[in-house]
């Protein structure tokens, strides 16, 4: 004897109003309304506060420039003598892959007018959010003097070690002619930096931002340095 096949119950056709009520978008009306409202509120907050935040960053940049170019010891010595570097901002536009990238460059000179070095502001994607860096160059642009992290939101305890002096110091005195490489377990070649344990992506991001900026700016900055020399 064969089993009678089971017939699923015919679904009852829901009414139009019932269907509308079940619609995901209609159910989520409050989420959508709140998202719109909060989005507008955040845009307002951003419009109000963004200039202030940008000014804070610029201030910090000017404070950090002597340290990035001269190192903390020499910078302190200069400050103790009551002297400061004269910093002049420029913008440099670079055409790359049909995109125009604009860099802010700070030209730093000693009080007697001699060129002390260059600092470029650059940014790129990190592991969590955008990383903003200041990158220092010697006057002849052939060597990095150091880097400083202006803004980052990397993982606490791992990726955020990119802000530590110990890690940043690896970038001081690296040559700009060849790209910097990230290694795990002991930098041996001259243009290598050690990755932070557990934060290889953050380490690579910072190095990538530096390499890009160096590649983009070595030419223009050398030209600016030469023009100054004349």
């Amino acid at each position: 004897m064969s089993m009678k096949p089971l017939h699923p119950m015919e679904p009852i056709e829901p009414g139009k109003l019932e269907r509308l009520k079940r619609n995901y978008l209609v159910q989520a009306w409050l989420v959508l309304m709140l998202a719109l409202f909060f989005g507008a509120a955040l845009a307002g907050v951003h419009l109000e506060l963004a200039p202030k935040i940008a000014a804070n960053k610029t201030n910090e940049t000017y404070v950090k420039i002597p340290e990035i170019i001269l190192g903390s010891e020499l910078a302190e010595e200069l400050a103790q003598q009551g002297e400061a570097l004269i910093v002049e901002p420029h913008t440099v536009a670079v055409e790359k892959e049909q995109r125009r990238i604009v860099y802010t460059i700070y030209e730093a000179s000693y009080p007697d007018g001699k060129l002390a070095g260059w600092v470029a502001k650059s940014s790129g994607q990190g592991y969590a959010d955008k990383i903003e860096l200041l990158i220092g160059f010697t006057p002849s642009v052939d060597t990095l003097t150091g880097i400083f992290v202006l803004d980052q939101k990397e993982t606490p305890g791992l990726g955020n070690k990119i802000i530590t002096l110990d890690w940043r110091q690896q970038f001081s005195n690296l040559k700009t002619l060849q790209p910097i490489e990230v290694t795990k377990g002991g930098a041996s070649d001259p243009n290598q930096v050690d990755a932070i344990t557990g934060a290889t992506i953050s380490s690579r991001s910072v190095t990538g931002i530096v390499n890009n900026a160096v590649a983009d700016l070595r030419g223009p900055l050398t030209a600016m340095a030469n023009a100054r020399g004349k």
């Binding site: 907050v45 804070n56 939101k153 802000i163």
Partner: peptide, 25 residues
């Protein structure tokens, strides 16, 4: 998330040093 973002921006604007110290927290 909305109020946290407002707090984060407010600290970055008016308590910049503290904002950098607390960072992603």
């Amino acid at each position: 998330a909305t109020f946290v973002t407002i707090t984060d921006r407010f600290l970055a604007a008016y308590m910049y040093g503290m904002s950098k110290l607390l960072g992603p927290y």
